[in-house]
């Protein structure tokens, strides 16, 4: 990390590259488990599911139309 060294004459600032610095305690969330399902979180995930279903339906329609074209050939 960055340290400040004062002596009686000069001020010295130490710069350390992040790769070679002391490891920090991060907020990894390891002991937290899953995110609390508040109303907002639940709504977002519901919206995401709806979006994925629409995409899947479009993909299915695309496959069905391609298959019909191949059959007609």
């Amino acid at each position: 990390m960055i340290a400040l060294n004062n002596d009686c004459l000069t001020e010295e600032l130490i710069v350390v590259h992040p790769l070679f610095d002391e490891p920090e305690q991060k907020r990894t969330g390891e002991n937290l488990g899953h995110m609390a399902m508040s109303r907002g979180v639940r709504f977002c995930l519901l919206l995401l599911r709806a979006y994925l279903i629409v995409m899947a339906l479009m993909l299915a329609a695309h496959v069905a139309m391609s298959a019909t074209m191949v059959t007609h050939r």
Binding site: L13, I14, P18
Partner: peptide
């Protein structure tokens, strides 16, 4: 060179060096 701590004298140099490292 990078693995060893680098001593600088001014705040500006410290900021510049830290930014270049990041």
């Amino acid at each position: 060179e990078v693995s060893a701590p680098i001593v600088v004298k001014t705040q500006r140099r410290r900021n510049l060096l830290t930014f270049l490292m990041v």
